[in-house]
Design a protein around this nucleic acid. Structure first.
Length: 195
DNA sequence: AGGATGATGAAG
DNA sequence: TTCATCATCCTA
């Protein structure tokens, strides 16, 4: 049962260098985080609720959620139906549709920061409630396109801003990429050597 | 029914 | 470091 975790982590890493796109915007994924559903207290799907229901559905669908009254974030559901695991797209590099992204984000934000952070990824792609449950393999609309070419060098570390399971090294990024977001530990996360 | 709280981002 | 801002979930 707990065999899901190795597979999930491999999948999460495989997403680095892939692109998530909605014509004409294309984002090359540079940073992801894995969430292991009922096995993972940090996952929205730790409990099955109406919000987390899409995570319990089939893989390769979008799980999108609204947070802090402002931001939409995008996950790719992974694993057989009922597994409820997924990968959060945390950051990327805008490689297509630059003008449309600029139109959405204004001119104050730097190129580097355009999709640096999960809320910004959502803003670039205009993610919203309508995208929840979308099949990311279908050609029209929001779409995930696998990486071409060789695998990038990958680094890993703890996930950003989670209070529970704060020490799991389930965040992955492309080594040295400048669009990777900064690490911030949740203020209330128990310290690593806390009893 | 009501309150606490975010898988955040931007400003100061 | 503070705060905007609100859907969701927990508690009662």
């Amino acid at each position: 049962m707990s065999d899901v975790i190795p597979g999930l982590l491999i999948y999460a890493k495989s997403l680095l260098g892939a692109t998530i796109q909605r014509d004409p915007v294309q984002i090359r994924i540079t940073e992801v985080e894995a969430y292991a559903g009922p096995l993972d207290p940090a996952s929205h799907a730790f409990r099955r609720t109406p919000r987390s229901e899409p995570m319990y559905g089939p893989p390769s669908r979008a799980y999108c959620y609204f947070t802090m009254g402002l931001h939409w974030c995008l996950n790719v559901v992974w694993g057989a139906e009922g597994t409820a695991a997924g990968v959060l797209i945390r950051a990327g590099e805008v490689v297509g549709g630059y003008d449309v992204v600029r139109q959405r984000r204004g001119d104050k934000i730097s190129d580097r920061d355009l999709a640096r952070g999960p809320g910004r990824v959502g803003a670039c792609l205009a993610i919203g409630a309508a995208d929840i449950g979308t099949d990311l393999r279908s050609v029209p609309g929001l779409r995930l396109v696998g990486r071409m070419g060789s695998a990038p060098a990958i680094e890993s570390g703890p996930r950003v801003g989670v209070r529970l399971a704060a020490d799991e090294q389930w965040r992955f990024w492309i080594a040295g990429d400048r669009t990777v977001s900064a690490y911030k530990r949740h203020a209330k996360a128990p310290s690593q050597s806390d009893d």
